[in-house]
Design a protein around this nucleic acid. Structure first.
Length: 570
RNA sequence: CGGGGCAUAGCGCAGCCUGGUAGCGCGUCUGCUUUGGGAGCAGAAGGUCACAGGUUCGAAUCCUGUUGCCCCGACCA
């Protein structure tokens, strides 16, 4: 590509509303432009990166035996009513009517459509297994779109859906897709982790997420030191502490704590560490009676774990203050398990504690020296909290907490959708069987941003070669004054293209500074400078994007290839 | 959905409090000079000041409403 014809649109200034580095650099590099909240246009430069990502994904999906399809972005409401998700998805879906008043949504995902597609054409066990995928634009009306492409409303996703006669075959395909995702991320040269996950709104049983590690990641990952255990913090299990509960020390004693509303206040008022306090959280139960959840003061509630407990409303709802007052006689800030006739569930971290500080169920008062069994009945103990760094993993080694960007998610859906939409096939005996389904998503546009979050420096983006917009840029010095430089550049450019190198020639006629700065900003991995000086000496100047200094190499294609090979794989 | 903020040239901003003919930097265009890390000089173009009402002799500025966008929160005992 000759850059004079490429509509590059770089800027020096960082746009005011870009918060994270990938968003800033994509805007400065001119890869994307914002149209409205969460909606972006991809420029020619951005498209080159996007296409490379898509091609890697397509190659690996094809290699894994998946079949590409393209489904409509707009989907009829009736399909979603059949699966029960028209209401369940709520405001996440962009809903619309056509001229006859028929209802549609802009698809946020395609389980219903693919199941309907399979239903029409798949009738026999001989046609299974099968795995359909597409690369397509989705729309999710996020509560709060932000961070550019990281949490856009319209985004590009690769989604795949597989159909199987039995669980064993679903397991096989699930592991095949997991392996394909591993190859995709390895080819892109990114540092990532695979973690156990909650399957969330999509439904189903087993699921794992692929996270690109980055400090700006929105997700927290709990990873054991041994490497044997890794889970999204939402799904990370915590272990009940071992050992015996200490014997109670002093007597239960009420202390005045006026104005104390939070654990931090309480610690300050009583001069206690947060580990020596318990916090009380009141949530709605399945019947009219609220349920009291008790956590150690320094722990936080994991609502996915809580709503999974029988008798607690799902989705989780916190009790309203009026309800709390009715049952506790006090307001939030002073609640506890003493003299209470409600169901109490305590996090198992509290099972082996003694002499805790808890709310007294009188406004502005707390108890100290609270002990289970003596001052209140033994509660139910359960895993209620989010894991924190240092917790023991299931394998016993301590957990570290990393931040990641979710770019892929593989699920075993089971028969949730095949059953709801009445997909059946006949087995060898002529009996109708409801197929097992798997679903495998990969964020195509998101991983472009994720790659930048992991690969940048002060000058701009440092693309891994596999997804760089160009592999190599040729920068001429004083091309408009020197026919020799022009000719040499044209020749090298033609030779590189013939050799299959994805090369850009910066023929914009700029001064060297702006050309160097642009090449670094847009992250081209390899740079060749052609000058009179070099031509006289029979050399070219080479610099890898991450190299501190440039160096002289021989003139010609072979020397360029050798230089690129040596510093490749950034 | 709750709270806060912003809207003035392509981009980043000042001007608003205290009403009086719309400015700065970057970018863009033309010419000359320059050419190894975001050049210099000279000239030029470009804005219904988000929209709609109102107050006023006069509104970017004051008042009301609307729209769009950004940030924080939605984990709380």
């Amino acid at each position: 590509m000759r850059l004079s014809r490429f509509a590059l649109a770089t800027t020096k200034q960082t746009p005011a509303d870009a918060e994270i580095i990938s968003h800033q650099l994509m805007l400065r590099a001119g890869m994307i432009r914002r149209l409205a909240a969460g909606l972006y246009t991809w420029s020619p430069l951005g498209m080159r990166v996007l296409r490379k990502v898509e091609n890697i994904i397509r190659e690996e999906m094809d290699a894994a035996g998946a079949l590409e399809v393209l489904m409509p972005a707009v989907q009829p409401a009736e399909l979603w009513r059949e699966s029960g998700r028209w209401e369940a998805m709520g405001d996440l879906m962009l809903k619309m009517d056509d001229r006859l008043g028929r209802e549609y949504c802009f698809g946020p995902t395609h389980e219903e459509v693919i199941t309907d597609f399979a239903k029409r054409d798949i009738a026999s066990y001989k046609q299974l297994p099968v795995n359909f995928y597409q690369i397509q634009t989705k729309f999710r009306d996020e509560i709060r779109p932000r961070f550019g492409l990281m949490r856009a409303r319209e985004f590009i996703m690769k989604d795949a859906y597989s159909f199987h006669m039995d669980q064993a075959d679903l397991d096989r395909e699930y592991h095949g897709m997991r392996a394909a995702y591993t190859r995709i991320l390895d080819r892109m040269g990114l540092d990532y982790r695979i973690v156990a996950a909650d399957s969330g709104a999509i439904g189903g049983a087993k699921s794992e997420e692929f996270h690109v590690l980055a400090h700006s990641g929105e997700d927290e990952l709990a990873v054991s030191e041994s490497g044997a255990y890794a889970a999204n913090i939402e799904a990370a299990v915590t272990r009940a502490p071992a050992g015996e509960r200490p014997a109670p020390g002093g007597e239960l004693r009420k202390v005045d704590t006026p104005g104390v509303a939070t654990i931090a206040d309480l610690c300050r008022a009583l001069d206690l560490p947060a580990e020596a306090t318990a916090k009380a959280i009141v949530v709605a139960g399945d019947d009219d009676r609220p349920v009291l959840l008790v956590l150690r003061g320094d722990h936080s509630l994991n609502d996915i774990k809580a709503e999974g407990i029988d008798g607690i409303a799902s989705p989780l709802r916190f009790a309203e203050e009026a309800v709390i007052r009715e049952h506790f006689g006090a307001g939030p800030g002073s609640l506890g398990p003493v003299h209470l006739s409600l169901r109490v569930i305590a996090d198992h971290a509290l099972e082996k504690t003694a002499d805790m500080a808890v709310g007294a169920n009188y406004d502005g008062a707390h108890f100290v020296n609270f002990n289970w069994g003596r001052d209140a009945p033994e509660p139910e103990f359960a895993d209620l909290r989010n894991a924190v760094a240092g917790d023991p993993a299931p394998d016993g080694s301590p957990l570290a907490v990393l931040r990641g960007i979710e770019v892929g998610h593989v699920f075993q859906l089971g028969d949730k959708y095949s059953r709801a939409l009445e997909l059946t096939v006949l087995d060898e005996n002529g009996a109708a069987v409801t197929p097992q389904m798997g679903c495998y998503g990969f964020g195509v546009s998101r991983i472009v941003a994720a790659a930048i979050e992991q690969c940048f420096d002060d000058a701009g983006i440092c693309w891994p070669t596999a997804i760089a917009p160009f592999e190599l840029v040729i920068v001429p010095i004083k091309a408009d004054k020197s026919e020799r430089v022009r000719d040499a550049c044209d020749t090298l450019y033609a030779e590189c293209r013939a050799a299959g190198i994805d090369v850009a020639l910066d023929d914009r006629g700029l001064r060297p500074g702006p050309m160097f700065a642009d090449a670094e900003l847009i992250g081209i991995p390899h740079r060749i400078v052609v000058s009179e000086r070099g031509l006289d000496a029979g050399t070219l100047e080479y610099k890898g994007r991450r190299d501190a200094e440039s160096r002289q190499i021989g003139h010609g294609l072979d020397a360029i290839r050798e230089a690129m090979g040596r510093t490749d794989g950034a």
